[in-house]
Design a protein around this nucleic acid. Structure first.
Lengths: 142, 142
DNA sequence: GGACTTATAGACCTTTCTATCCGGTGTTGT
DNA sequence: ACAACACCGGATAGAAAGGTCTATAAGTCC
């Protein structure tokens, strides 16, 4: 459904959301805790930084932190930052000629799924995800 | 959402479903009507043949036809034959440790989407798709 | 200032998906 | 028998996603 990058981005963001307020977390720490390949995670964190979802600080005690409170970051923000907004847009059969007036065979069935999906992306906040994550058992905290 | 291969497979199947009963349709004809690269379509038709969704006949008047009536072929059959059954199965965040007892942060929200998606895949038959396709305007018949 | 740590940036490799090519086999019609 | 046609199957090339490596810049501590 989502790309690997988006999965990692969500997991990293959840991890950051569950850090003590004011604490900066290094990429290495996220990588080890979440079992995400370090070099690849860097790319993803860089991208999230550019998209202003997190802030980065260099130096010995540098690291990352959320750029906004977790309740103000939606799942859609994260997925869109990583995969682009075409995830939900566009014809499910890849047809150029597909609209309400001239729907493709799957158009109407797909619309229902798309609605549920959009709801999920828009209504789920990072704070919601972080709370569930705190209740989780091993191995990671996501 | 689906792979390109799955899109092509669905469109090809719909095209076959809309042929007169008893008629064999060549790969070239499907390729031209649906604007699908010929060599790639062959692969997909071969796979659908192996999966027993369509039947193939060699020789001068050879071609393909549905192996079962269109009402007995679901969208799930087609997508699963092409993309495998992992599309809907498996954790949306790619976590090994994800179950009802130990759900990942997205598990419950995702379940609702997954239900809608599964409904769509299981309940939509090729006959349904073919009927909508017949009502469609240019350029292709899907 | 110098060593250390951590993020940044870009080039690079690997795997998977998409797409093509070509020799081969079976069927039909002459 | 033979040629034409249409599917079969493996090898190959291109593109994109996933993942790695190296050099660099910036901040902190001594």
């Amino acid at each position: 459904m989502f790309s690997r990058s988006a999965e990692y981005a969500v997991r990293a963001m959840v991890f950051l959301a569950n850090q003590p307020p004011g604490r900066l977390t290094g990429a290495r720490e996220v990588s080890e805790a979440e079992q995400i390949p370090g070099a690849f995670l860097w790319k993803i964190l860089q991208n999230l930084t550019r998209r202003k979802l997190i802030r980065s600080f260099k130096g010995v005690h540098g690291g990352y932190e959320l750029a906004r409170p977790a309740v103000e970051i939606t799942l859609e923000d994260i997925v869109e930052a990583t995969d682009g907004q075409e995830v939900v847009t566009g014809c499910v059969l890849g047809l150029a000629e597909c609209s309400e007036e001239n729907p493709c065979p799957l158009h109407n069935s797909w619309k229902e799924v798309k609605t549920k999906l959009t709801e999920m992306l828009e209504q789920t906040t990072l704070a919601d995800l972080a709370e569930v994550a705190r209740k989780r058992k091993s191995p990671s905290n996501v």
